[in-house]
């Protein structure tokens, strides 16, 4: 797996956090089983550079921590409301950032080449249909303007 924005170690850490957050349940695959991490650059290429740097630095630090400590930190961030003021805000940002990246990848339904399961969207039965051919009726507004 390659990323223009994250190192292999950082990607590995993100995968570990992903599997902690989405371990798999019933017919829902785990995060790593979808190989959706392969698409992380699709998010990061559109993310402001300072935010990408912050994420990379966070993952670099977390890479040295044992799984149990990462799990504790993730759970702590998810209980941010219990902490007032600046600390609560920072924990909420951490929660938003991590869940934002991991849930976006997982529930995008994108599965990478190393996927060991079907997409989670198949598991929940999500499908959107929109016939993309513009109908001639849709050009009516041109006469109106």
């Amino acid at each position: 797996m390659k990323s223009t924005f994250l190192s292999l170690r950082q990607l590995d850490t993100l995968q570990r956090i992903g599997d902690f957050m989405l371990p798999g349940a019933s017919n829902m695959p785990s995060f790593s089983e979808t190989d959706s991490l392969s698409f992380v650059d699709e998010i990061l290429s559109e993310t402001p550079e300072p935010d990408v740097k912050d994420l990379a630095m966070l993952l670099s630090v977390l890479a040295f921590l044992p799984g149990s400590v990462i799990a504790w930190l993730v759970k702590l961030a998810q209980r941010a409301d219990k902490f007032p003021g600046l600390l609560g805000g920072q924990l909420r940002l951490l929660d938003l950032g991590l869940r934002g990246v991991i849930f976006s990848l997982y529930y995008s339904g994108k599965t990478g080449g190393q996927a060991k399961s079907a997409s989670p969207l198949q598991a929940i039965g999500f499908e959107l249909v929109c016939l993309a051919e513009p109908s001639p009726k849709n050009t009516l507004h041109e006469n109106n303007l």
């Binding site: 957050m21 989405l22 798999g24 349940a25 019933s26 017919n27 991991i102 849930f103």
Partner: peptide, 18 residues
């Protein structure tokens, strides 16, 4: 998924009810 707080198996089971 973002609207429901938390993560883990319980979160995934909730999402199965989408």
């Amino acid at each position: 998924a973002m609207l429901k707080p938390g993560s883990g198996k319980q979160h995934q089971r909730f999402m199965q009810n989408y």
